[in-house]
Nucleic acid binder design. Structure first.
Lengths: 142, 142
DNA sequence: TAACTAAATGCAACAATGTTGCAAAATAAA
DNA sequence: TTTATTTTGCAACATTGTTGCATTTAGTTA
């Protein structure tokens, strides 16, 4: 269980003023290990925030390096907590993302590192993202 | 240069009846080697099709395995031609996709194969997608 | 070729998603 | 406590995606 103190401190450490919505949304991320989309957040938040506030909060979190976005093929960006070392918009992300075709959840496989690849001459890689879809651990177990 | 005959035949070979919009949209894909988003198509098509028609055409093309979708982190799915062997919705795609941060184009790097990865015990992979962003050949040359 | 059938198109209406400006409220600083 | 700055919520709007239905078109058959 996460204490309120931690959330507040986490926000402050990232140069974000502590407000109700930021606290609540950050708690949602901490309470769960999967990724959340904008609409997930609107659904899960008990008290309702304005849609605009959610957009702006997510944007602020990404900019400060608190969360990172995960591309999907269904037109709904998902966000997940960054594990430390990401600050000031510069996101360094070397793990694989997994999307379960059964439960629909998106999760970070922190322990699976994205393999390096060799691009054709002339191309410069700046970021590499690896998305695996299939059946997740808990869905496969059933 | 692609002849009209080819386009028609390509459509027929994929069990799609030949219509004006399908012909035109397929030509757009053939004329270019990058990927196209829905809005790209609306912009590029000289004659204007109804937005709904474009959506339905893209959907039909994906179902028949003529094109495949490429996930992005900017909430706009892009589509690219499948190189043969994709039929009836079952898309087998083993190449890397590249998104240029300068020109914004998305392209298939057919020659770069997505490396295999080892997932944690319990996970089943069904599809793997690799997205590299950076600077493309033509932008880097300048 | 003409007639028929099935499919595709365009329109309208709508739903969902994302953006901007601005006044009110809340936070952080003095 | 007061002040300065930031955040919030609202309204209005823009963009994107969906659905039902009548009309048109393509493929098929006679």
């Amino acid at each position: 269980m996460i204490m309120e103190k931690n959330v507040d401190e986490l926000l402050r450490r990232n140069q974000l003023s502590v407000t109700g919505s930021r606290r609540k949304i950050l708690e949602l991320f901490l309470q769960q290990d999967g990724a959340l989309s904008h609409s997930d957040i609107e659904k899960k938040a008990s008290e309702k925030f304005d849609r605009v506030t959610v957009y702006r909060t997510l944007q602020a979190f990404v900019e400060k390096g608190l969360i990172h976005s995960i591309p999907t093929s269904d037109n709904s960006i998902r966000y997940a907590l960054c594990k430390d070392e990401c600050t000031g918009g510069q996101h360094r992300d070397d793990h694989v993302h997994f999307i379960c075709n059964v439960c629909g959840n998106t999760m970070c496989l922190e322990e699976v590192v994205v393999p390096g690849i060799k691009l054709p001459r002339g191309y410069v890689a700046q970021q590499v993202e690896m998305l695996v879809s299939g059946i997740c651990k808990s869905c496969a177990a059933r």
